[in-house]
Write a protein that binds this DNA or RNA. Structure first.
Lengths: 219, 219
DNA sequence: TAGATTGTTAATCGATTAACAATC
DNA sequence: TAGATTGTTAATCGATTAACAATC
């Protein structure tokens, strides 16, 4: 049943979970065919993805919704308590601090940091903003699983280095810049401008590349 | 030289552009090897990607930085003027309205909409918030290239339908839900919770999958 | 000429999906 | 039993990358 999961499978698991959570609570089972329809994916692909989580589907019936959701949550580590810090409390950082969607996914914000003395001491989402200089020391006593970078682009690489040195194993970068991190640090990037530019290609595509269509939206 | 571009290539072009923009202005040329290093990709892959934009590299020298940047911009439609509306002006919507990074990438916010009468009439990023009911009518007179959904999850599917019916060809969805849109509508998804869950897998991976490492972060 | 680097080929790798035996 | 659906195989498809002739 196990080993490692293909990267593409890992990136689809959150989407399956979203679909399961949208089902009526009375719903007991779901087939790969219907889950594929809900998630805009292929039924054979859904079955292959789920097969990495074990062999627990019922032939002729489908998958037990609760069990499937539980297996996805466990695989993604959502049953653990994950600590998060946000660095850079501007518009976006504040939005993240106020976002309620972390808790029910196993993530908990334990610190907000900013380099601007005018912001330090103020609160966002009920948490007091601390000076960025404190991050390294705080990391010694508090385990930090993820650092979210929401600073301006120019500051992002420095913050990434700071987080890496402090032993934070995962970084989610919202700053519009390419980051370099040491081997072994997990990095993901969320970039509005990049997404718009990709959409821009497919829009422009209509008068340049003839039949170019967009791929299934990933994740 | 041309036809359509592989989806994976399109998704890397914004990253190349970011790297080029980080170079010193005095920099005249760059080799595929250095661009690969800066963007954390493979040099052969960089050359293959760029070959879709034409054959303009100089053997023994590299690529002319300005020409390369210009070709990427043109391919992504950044030389055109693209109109954007944002629906849902909460924390995130406000952050988007105030984000300065659109203009220099060819995107211009022409409308903000919200369903909450208390928000209508207020401003964000210098633009007055209009009632969501006005969107369809506004779309008749103003060309809208992209609709950004920043509403709560529950409202997102309805807004997506509204945008599609109004003839908006591209949607960027920030709401934490899976959307279904008609064929031909370009949809991309930005989802913090999903990104965290993917990171969560690789964190948990350390005590489950043995040697599982994360893939190169995409885009 | 010698060194560097492109553009492209071909091999490899990984992801997707149709098909179907197994089985509920 | 008949119908439905899984789990898996094998074919296909697309993406990545090493290698190298072409050439600046």
């Amino acid at each position: 049943m196990k080993g490692t999961l293909p990267a593409a499978t890992v990136e689809r698991l959150p989407r399956y979970l979203r679909c399961l959570e949208m089902l009526a609570p009375s719903r007991v089972t779901i087939s790969s065919k219907e889950l594929a329809r809900l998630s805009n994916l292929n039924a054979a692909g859904v079955r292959k993805d789920l097969s990495y989580l074990g062999s627990f589907g019922m032939r002729g019936v489908g998958y037990h919704v609760d069990e499937l959701a539980a297996r996805i949550r466990r695989t993604l580590g959502m049953t653990e308590d994950r600590t998060v810090v946000v660095i850079g409390i501007g518009n976006l950082g504040s939005a993240l601090a106020n976002y309620g969607g972390f808790g029910n996914r196993g993530f908990r914000i334990v610190g907000l940091y900013d380099a601007d003395p005018a912001k330090v001491g103020r609160k966002a989402g009920g948490i007091t903003i601390r000076p960025i200089e404190r991050l390294a020391k705080d990391a010694e006593t508090t385990d930090i699983a993820v650092g979210i970078i929401a600073t301006p682009a120019k500051a992002a690489q420095g913050v990434a280095a700071l987080l890496s040195e402090a032993g934070v194993p995962s970084i989610l970068n919202f700053a519009p810049t390419v980051l370099n991190v040491p081997d072994g640090i997990h990095l993901r990037q969320v970039d509005v401008a990049t997404e718009l530019q990709i959409l821009g290609f497919y829009m422009a595509g209509r008068n340049r590349t003839g039949g170019a269509s967009h791929p299934d939206d990933p994740g």
